[in-house]
Design a binder for these strands. Structure first.
Lengths: 234, 234
DNA sequence: GCGTAAGTGGACATTCCCTTCCGGTTAGCG
DNA sequence: CGCTAACCGGAAGGGAATGTCCACTTACGC
């Protein structure tokens, strides 16, 4: 991943990202062909991100979508806006996974399921991994989503600890740890990524059980927002 | 990390890499100032790799060393040759760690020590991580070193299993898994990298103990040579 | 000393990517 | 049907990194 220094905040352009304006946002104001192209771009971006990560050249996405570069930039002024739009669904899916787990009466199963599912999502879509990990600072709603997810996860962890199935010295930062580890295991691993991830997750879940609670070195100061971004100092 | 497609095999240039030629290799044929600059370049490269990974621009290294780009390229025709030279020591240290562990009469302690030390090395030097992980295909002696290390590790694993302290279904590929996970936890984690790595390693070592042997999903087909390079197909 | 081969550094050509601009095209309202 | 604002794609400007070339400088053997 590179720099992304240029987060010039574009003034509300016509997309679903625009915060709640009047009723149906002005998506409808797009001409039919433009709307069509917009969908093609999103589809192409989804595929490109999944296959090659977030770093694919914009031209590659445009070519794949069968449109000119200008069209791409007109619709999504920054790479960030494109990423956000592409992964909005998957971010939502993440939230759904957490919510679903919150509804599970079995605390450990809830915990295990969340971990397994999110890691599986990381594997399924390489671009999503990075999108998930990269805390775009300017992203409008992203922080809110993350915060809610973190809150839900904290609750799941709390319950699992209370039930005595999750070790007491488990730290929320350990989830970040797990995501980063899973990312490392997944990145540049091609076909074996799924198997590798499954095995890593299985290993770690065993360590997270309360029974095997040998003392641990202290947890690093990492929040979910640090999964990819840089931590405290430096 | 990028491509490194250009592995034009340079004809033995005057450096320690040159295979055993006559007695003292022709390092001595370098003029005094050239030798001096060579050292400065290596030092600068060491620092740059450690701080920013293997991707630092060659010009940055040259500037840091206070020499021109041409000098850098003259001394090290490819980025690979520079990397190999810079990390030759650390590769050797890795081998030493394995050998040392092989001498340890306590099989589990040997296993644990190897894991902990190598992971600590990964943390200490970010460039080394990548260097270690990136299997430069053309590297002269690297394959030999790796093969020997892998052999030593296999022996350590065998002993630990025989002693009943390492779980029977542990696979050599799990070491690769661990290194990749450690890399993921370490990358872009700045100051907390050490703490994060320690904690991850502690977690995984617990899972590796024989006592906690719940069944695992099958091991991915990863050898040490795949830690960073791509696996079987694709 | 001094001549020369070895060594040096910066400018340069090349490649790749991002982003903007502009002349031509088209959807869709009246 | 016809006009116009919205839309389109490619060309072109700008920046960063790689690796090469060449005119100048310097170590060091004699």
């Amino acid at each position: 991943m590179s720099t992304y220094a240029n987060v010039r905040n574009m003034p509300a352009h016509p997309s679903r990202i625009a915060p709640s304006a009047e009723g149906e946002p002005r998506t409808g104001t797009l001409r039919a062909d433009a709307l069509h192209n917009r969908e093609r771009i999103l589809q192409a971006a989804r595929e490109a991100f999944a296959a090659r990560g977030l770093d694919v050249p914009m031209v590659a996405i445009a070519r794949r979508a069968g449109v000119g570069v200008a069209t791409l930039y007109r619709r999504f002024p920054s790479r960030e806006s494109l990423v956000m739009e592409v992964f909005a669904d998957q971010f939502a899916a993440c939230g759904a996974v957490v919510d679903e787990a919150l509804a599970d009466p079995d605390p450990w199963r809830a915990f295990r399921t969340v971990v397994e599912k999110v890691c599986a999502m990381q594997v399924a879509d390489r671009g999503f991994t990075e999108a998930f990990l990269t805390a775009f600072p300017g992203a409008i709603d992203y922080e809110g989503v993350r915060a809610r997810a973190e809150q839900g996860l904290a609750e799941i962890v709390r319950r699992a600890k209370a039930a005595g199935s999750l070790r007491a010295d488990f730290d929320l930062a350990d989830l970040t740890l797990l995501l980063k580890a899973n990312h490392g295991v997944t990145a540049d691993t091609g076909d074996s990524a799924a198997a590798a991830s499954r095995r890593l997750v299985a290993y770690l879940l065993q360590s997270f059980r309360a029974e095997t609670a040998e003392p641990l070195p202290s947890a690093p100061p990492l929040g979910l927002q640090h999964v990819y971004a840089l931590p405290p100092t430096r």
